[in-house]
Amino acid sequence: MDKIPILKMGQYLLVTVQVDLYDRLALGLESDLVNMIRKHSSRGVLIDISAVNIVDSFMGRILGNIAQMSKILDAHTVVVGMQPAVAITLIELGLPMTGVHTALNVEKGMDLLREQLLAQEPLTPEEDDDYQ
């Protein structure tokens, strides 16, 4: 059976969906990702959907689920590269995916993950300088 590959990059997991999504494939991705986050104690997940032409209510829900599940496991999820036509269709469908963080491309998505990680860390010594 087909599988969507998940790449591990340091503290992050990287998924690039290159094929047409269908339900079983999306469900497989959901469970694989959750297991990978647990196994590697990942802090962030980046899902690139720039090659995906269709996201319907089911696949939109899977993306939302992944975001929620990874949140529980203390990892942030960013969905990047959504095509304009897909975004317009999701809105018309009634699925604004408010719980999911988004970014324009992989680069901006990585920046967002790093920022979110930094915001959680305690202040670094350099920043403490100001108070001395």
Binding site: D23, F58, I88, T89
Partner: peptide, 17 residues
């Protein structure tokens, strides 16, 4: 157009499911 195409395909995807 691409947007209308995507809308139709998404609708079809819902109905097939």
């Amino acid at each position: 157009g691409l947007v209308n195409q995507t809308k139709l395909l998404t609708a079809a995807s819902e109905l097939v499911r």
